[in-house]
């Protein structure tokens, strides 16, 4: 499906100090469960995202372990109290050495 890893990240703009903001992230991933047979009847090997993390300037602010029951193109939304501006680094790790990193700015006024 994918020619390159694609992700959708949403970070609110014009955030005031102390606001609780919602960060949303979707990544294109097949999330193949490892339980399905292919057309030949053999099992399709598991290929899922296993871990999602978000750090603000190196400090972990959110992390999730992901399991095969999660649907394709997993979507995460989480809340964050914005105390200061910084760089949000979102990373996804998974089977077959899957690793993707997105960087976005959180600007607090």
């Amino acid at each position: 499906m994918a020619t390159a890893v694609r992700a959708l990240i949403h970070v609110p703009r014009q955030v005031r100090r102390g606001d609780v903001v919602e960060i949303r992230a979707t990544i294109a991933h097949v999330m193949e469960t490892g339980h399905r047979p292919d057309s030949e009847g053999s099992r399709v090997p598991r290929d899922i995202v296993t871990r999602f993390e978000c750090q603000l300037d190196g400090t972990p602010v959110f992390a999730a372990d992901v399991y095969p029951a999660v649907a394709a193109n997993p979507y995460f939304a989480f809340a964050l109290r914005a105390e200061r501006s910084g760089t949000l680094v979102l990373t996804w790790e998974g089977d077959r050495g899957f690793r993707h990193r997105e960087t976005t700015a959180l600007e607090v006024t």
Partner: peptide, 14 residues
């Protein structure tokens, strides 16, 4: 409605 949630936007960007 929300382009940051609509998974179809992954294909739009591609």
């Amino acid at each position: 409605r929300d382009d940051t949630q609509n998974p179809g936007m992954l294909w739009v960007h591609e």
